[in-house]
Amino acid sequence: MSAASPDAAGTRICVVGDDLVAGLGDARGMGWVGRVAARTQSETPLAFFALAVPGETSTSLSGRWETECNRRFGAGENRLVVAPGSADLQHGVSLARSRLNLANVLDDAANRQIPTFVVGPPPRADVSESALGDLSGAFADVCQRRRVTYVETFEPLRTHEQWLSDTSAGDGTHPQQAGYGLLAWLVLHNGWHEWLGLPQE
């Protein structure tokens, strides 16, 4: 990851989401965001800002992203990565409201000409598998309608042996190093470089 000074005319990438954005449970402290940043090579400066709120619902995310990102965005190119977690299922947020919350974020960003990229919620043991699958599908549909890249993490990891063993070895819901590596791999191989206009590794 290239460091960018406050006045550098590079690209600033804000990543908003729950505790997975912060890399909770990763002994290396990188999470998937740090791993993606480390594998993203660019001739112009790239600055990543991980803006995580543990247990955040899509309602909370939609209400805070703009204010928090505005503090980090600069005069160069600004981009937004949205990584909604599964907290909507634990806080009784309806599927329709979850869809609307994400749609509002994407539409507001589009109105400001801020390119967006969405990373869906991965499987976890403390929520209904079918409900989480429905939530991920709803987020995917919102993105498809707006031609925004959506990285599906639930289905590829739902029965992935390494993901399941990695999360169960920790606190049961958060991955460790191997799990975050899997999330980073999915991001890097599902439109990340194309979204940034960079050659594929």
Rank of each mutant, 00 (worst) to 15 (best):
G25P: 10
G55W: 04
S58M: 09
S5N: 07
V53R: 14
L80P: 10
R28E: 15
M30Y: 07
A50L: 00
G55V: 13
V82I: 12
R39F: 00
G55Y: 05
A47G: 14
H91F: 01
H91K: 13
R71S: 13
S5T: 10
S60A: 14
A27G: 14
N70R: 15
T40F: 07
G34P: 01
F49T: 14
C14M: 00
S5I: 02
G55A: 13
S94P: 11
G34H: 07
V36T: 14
R12C: 06
E66P: 04
G74L: 04
A103T: 13
V81D: 03
A47Q: 13
S94Q: 00
L80H: 03
G34F: 01
A3D: 09
I13V: 15
A47L: 12
A3H: 12
R39S: 15
D18R: 03
A52C: 04
P45G: 12
N104A: 12
R97A: 15
L61D: 08
R35K: 10
V16K: 02
V53D: 13
A4R: 06
G63N: 08
S86W: 06
R39Y: 02
A96T: 14
S42P: 13
A87P: 07
A103R: 14
L95V: 09
M30A: 15
A4L: 13
A75G: 10
V105P: 08
F48E: 08
T59S: 15
V15C: 07
S5P: 04
V33C: 12
D26W: 08
D88C: 09
G17A: 01
V53T: 15
V93P: 02
V33F: 03
L61C: 09
L61S: 01
T67C: 09
A103C: 12
N101T: 03
S2R: 07
R39T: 13
D26M: 09
G10T: 00
V82F: 05
A37E: 15
L89F: 00
T44R: 14
L24D: 09
R35E: 05
A9P: 03
A50K: 04
D108A: 11
S42H: 02
V81M: 10
G74M: 05
A4T: 05
Q90H: 06
V33W: 05
C14N: 11
L51Q: 12
R64D: 08
R72W: 08
L106F: 01
T57K: 10
L51P: 06
C14V: 15
D19V: 11
L89P: 05
